[in-house]
Design a protein around this nucleic acid. Structure first.
Lengths: 334, 334
DNA sequence: CTACCATACGTTAGCGTTAACGTAAATCCT
DNA sequence: AGGATTTACGTTAACGCTAACGTATGGTAG
């Protein structure tokens, strides 16, 4: 490994001080056009690359952001990641991506490592940390944005962005009611999932809004996958053959509903309407095509990054608690 | 923002030199158990967090790795990312994730920013750079691992990992031949895609291995999506009604084949066998379930990271050109 | 003509850490 | 016993950059 070319090399070659080179490289004022040009040419010629590490040490800014998510392999988070990274790129930041696997210890380890790396800010997605721990970390990071996680006390250096699952679910119910449905089933997801809880709230609220009774037997919990939907359908329809519509926890669950309905010879949407959640690519390909609630995850990631960068730069006041609305995509299933 | 707690604070509090604190924090020898313990307690108590930036400057090692991919939102790359990050985490590295969108300028910008950030190594996925540019960057990075990209001259500080698409395709053909097929169609993907080229090679080689003639009209290019498969099927079957098997560029293309076959009233696999590529979750859910060639992308990412870290640590000799074999997953479609 | 100011630089002193070397005391070996 | 080695520290000097301040030069206003 040959020795690194430093700002001193450029300075000597150009017969100026390091400070002048620094000004030239960073487009700062207090330097004439000619010298700047000359320095930039020399830098280019001798292959000088500024050391981000040294700069970070000197300025106390790393131009680096931490993004903490449960699992990039999950399309939900990979899309958020994409939206966030795109804006980071445009704004001159690099992003550290960390997976937690919804494991608290791993999440803590991730946050600690980001703290050591001295990121300028962090975006935490679906954090599993206790409120106490979370608050401690928020204090330690310069700035933090939380996605899909509420916070009791919202401090100066943080903001939250949440998907309004409750509202989305209410929308879906209103749509189904408008179609004449009154016996609407809900396939709830894992109990510990906050989005599952929010959808449950939305479901109850939606029924109330439309003056429909709440019947416990219409709510079935299901694993968040195809098989979960299949099982839940068999389960529900064996008990309640008056059900005419089902809200699935997500599109895969909806696909499971399709499979069960085919077996049981229920027709979608004639006998049963189905509405999914997520709008995965498969949704449009299913037969009949699946109506579903889509949240723009890329936009979500973008908005989180935008918020974080605004906080960092302290440009302007920004909403501390933001919300993203899912959109009801109507297709053929209900 | 309160002032950062530094190693000096800990040193003063513990009545030792900074060097001793450094030794304690980094588990280095030349320090007694008692002092180490005492120092660690004090560090914990006053909330000392070592500055990774300062450490990187002093040691010339950032414990940071750059991962450059076309698009995290694409499941293929998000899984690679996951596999890579997992190992990075275990090995004490953080990874910078960058998307290029297959845009050469953005890729260069990404690499430049990683160079500035002084990553200890980089993993480049499906790089679109010219050989010349690529070689220049490989020279600039301490270490580089390329995924799905060949390199003419393989320098000391680099390695490549490629998916053996050709072999996978040959496997599929041998399987189809064993089933009695002789007229096997290929739906090739985008021409500029190297995996498409490799599969074409594998296709030709596979036919030759099995003493089958090469017929140009059996090869149709298709967009890498459902619609592409749909169109290509209609196209192919209108010209060649003797085709009894099709290799799809990927599983979505295969899904398009299914749709076209349903319309044309061809039965799968009775009239036509179909084999996909990728094994996306949908593959197992399709009717009939789709036989496909699966490459373990997580393993691919893991292996790339493993190789990079081995290069960095210079632990042991490592294969400079590695290959990952896709596995033929046999289901009901052929 | 002086006082003031802007412009274009240079100097100095860190940022927080560790490598490399120095040193004093304890331990060991023959 | 006396030199060699080991252990447990401390000192010094970087790593590469920039903030903050200093200085010289020329212009400008009154």
């Amino acid at each position: 490994m040959t020795k690194r070319i430093t700002i001193a090399n450029v300075a000597k070659e150009a017969n100026v001080s390091m400070m002048t080179v620094s000004r030239a490289m960073n487009n700062k004022k207090g330097i004439s056009q000619e010298t700047r040009q000359k320095i930039l040419e020399i830098a280019e010629r001798i292959g000088y690359r500024p050391s981000g590490v040294a700069r970070a040490l000197a300025t106390n800014r790393s131009s680096t952001i931490g993004l903490v998510i449960p699992d990039v392999a999950n399309p939900f988070f990979s899309q958020i990641t994409r939206g966030a990274e795109d804006l980071a790129y445009l704004s001159g930041y690099n992003v550290f991506l960390v997976n937690t696997d919804e494991n608290i210890d791993r999440e803590k380890a991730a946050l600690n490592s980001l703290l050591e790396k001295q990121v300028d800010g962090a975006i935490l997605c679906s954090s599993r940390l206790s409120c106490e721990d979370l608050n401690k970390y928020i204090e330690d990071f310069p700035y933090t944005v939380l996605i899909n996680r509420d916070l009791d006390l919202l401090v100066e250096n943080s903001a939250t962005i949440n998907v309004d699952d409750s509202f989305g679910t209410q929308q879906a119910i209103s749509h189904l009611v408008a179609l004449g449905h009154t016996k609407i089933g809900l396939f709830a997801g894992p109990e510990e999932s906050t989005s599952s809880q929010r959808r449950m709230n939305g479901y109850l609220q939606g029924l109330e809004n439309n003056n429909l009774p709440i019947e416990e037997s219409l709510v079935v919990s299901s694993s968040p996958n195809t098989n979960g939907g299949y099982q839940a359908t068999k389960d529900l329809l064996s008990k309640r053959n008056d059900v005419t519509a089902i809200l699935a926890f997500n599109d895969l669950v909806a696909f499971g509903i399709y499979q069960a309905c085919e077996e049981l010879e229920y027709s979608i949407p004639d006998d049963i309407s189905v509405i999914g959640f997520d709008d995965i690519p498969l949704a449009a390909l299913m037969k009949p095509s699946l109506s579903t609630l889509r949240t723009d995850k890329r936009e979500l990631g973008h908005q989180a990054m935008q918020t974080l960068i605004t906080l960092i730069n302290n440009d302007e006041d920004i909403a501390r608690e933001q919300t993203i609305q899912p959109a009801l995509i109507l297709r053929d299933s209900g």
